[in-house]
Design a protein around this nucleic acid. Structure first.
Lengths: 142, 142
DNA sequence: ATACGACCTCCAGCTACTGTAGGTTCAAGA
DNA sequence: TCTTGAACCTACAGTAGCTGGAGGTCGTAT
């Protein structure tokens, strides 16, 4: 039986995060000690490891919820899990493309900056005038 | 004099977002009509365009605050603006690197999935067992 | 005069946690 | 057995950067 702190260490998760996952129903309510402290077994360790690993791969908690559900039903078709992973891959590819456009623009800004006063700083100039940009970077975020 | 709705359209910003920027002090409090509605001039249009453009390039609101301040003081050294842009570039490059690692892993997962039952789904299997991964993807997010 | 869209303020909610306050439990050492 | 101190508990607030809704007012065209 593991305490929450031990589980946290084993999975590289913060204690609060584990309680948060329980709260939103991603992890089941564990057993308790006589004094009311959470006690975990191996099943919970595996489940939390799964969650953490999926998070590291960028899956949203909602996606992870679906993946866990699939994982709990070995007879279901694999297609759904596959679709979720493909969706995630697509998102990652889109983000890479977007970030690469930003990278290009930022590099250009930085390289053109000659180091004088802000009055004629290229960085600020480009920010002031979008038409100086080569790429379309409409969507926000990144 | 522009209404907030017109300003929103011209800059591709939502009305609420403009009010939010005002609230956090990124945009100055504008003049008002006799009835209390916000009225904007060209200075505000320029400032909001600057903010939006910087957001599109992924700068945080805090970074934008600094950039605006620099932009407001033409005699200051350009070096600071340059440093902020370089910092941003570095962040973007790190994110790209991280996403590319995720991309590799996700591709592998998806390509190995043969389409049977979840019991032997490669996607789920890899998520269950981190040791199957080629890359280190410790940090969360993406 | 009235209708209707655009505006106003205030507040709640989103993702995925993280941190804090104030109190309790557990396990080891004296 | 008692004490100490770390680890635990609940509950709630805060983070970034918005977004949406409720309930009410303003502006302008007809």
């Amino acid at each position: 039986m593991l305490t929450i702190g031990t589980l946290a260490k084993k999975t590289g998760t913060k204690v609060q995060t584990i309680r948060y996952y329980e709260q939103i129903g991603l992890l089941p309510e564990p057993g308790r000690s006589s004094g009311g402290q959470r006690r975990y077994g191996d099943a919970e360790l595996d489940r939390l490891s799964f969650v953490r690993h999926a998070r590291q791969l960028g899956f949203s908690l909602e996606a992870i919820r679906e993946l866990l559900d699939l994982s709990d039903h070995p007879d279901k078709s694999c297609a759904e899990a596959d679709a979720i992973a493909r969706r995630q891959l697509k998102q990652v590819e889109q983000r890479i493309a977007r970030l690469e456009a930003l990278q290009t623009e930022l590099k250009r800004m930085v390289h053109e900056c000659s180091g004088g006063h802000t009055a004629d700083c290229r960085v600020l100039e480009v920010l002031r005038d979008h038409s100086e940009c080569l790429t379309n970077h409409e969507e926000i975020g990144g």
